[in-house]
């Protein structure tokens, strides 16, 4: 459970993003990971190895636990990507799908 410090919650910096189809309020300058945590998302993916839920761990781009799909592009490190208005973020379930599944 995370929350924004009152000191940092400047209303004028609000940015609207969409997470798993739901409208979420974030702050300009947030990384996707920070926005997810501040909005109360406990997990951002399930592991493709064993299905366990994972969430951001290191916040600096070296653990790769914060992988999410951003605007349709999968396996992005949420802690390295800054949010933008209207950004569509989807949590990942297992191994990411690629288009055109073959036989």
């Amino acid at each position: 459970m995370f929350a924004r410090l009152p000191d940092a919650a400047h209303l004028r910096d609000v940015v609207d993003i969409i997470v798993d189809g739901t409208a979420v309020v974030a702050r300009a300058g947030d990384t996707v990971a920070a926005a997810l945590l501040a909005a109360g998302f406990e997990r951002c993916r399930t592991s493709p190895v064993g299905g366990a839920p994972r969430a951001p761990f290191c916040m600096m781009g070296v653990c790769f636990d914060c992988l999410v799909t951003i605007d349709g592009i999968g396996s992005q490190q949420a802690c390295l990507v800054a949010i933008a208005p209207g950004m569509r973020i989807d949590t990942q379930r297992g191994a990411r799908a690629i288009d055109g599944a073959a036989a």
């Binding site: 493709p48 190895v49 396996s75 297992g94 191994a95 990411r96 799908a97 690629i98 055109g100 599944a101 073959a102 036989a103």
Partner: peptide, 10 residues
């Protein structure tokens, strides 16, 4: 590559 959902069975 990273793990991806099954798409190539041969």
């Amino acid at each position: 590559t990273e793990r991806v959902a099954p798409f190539l069975s041969m």
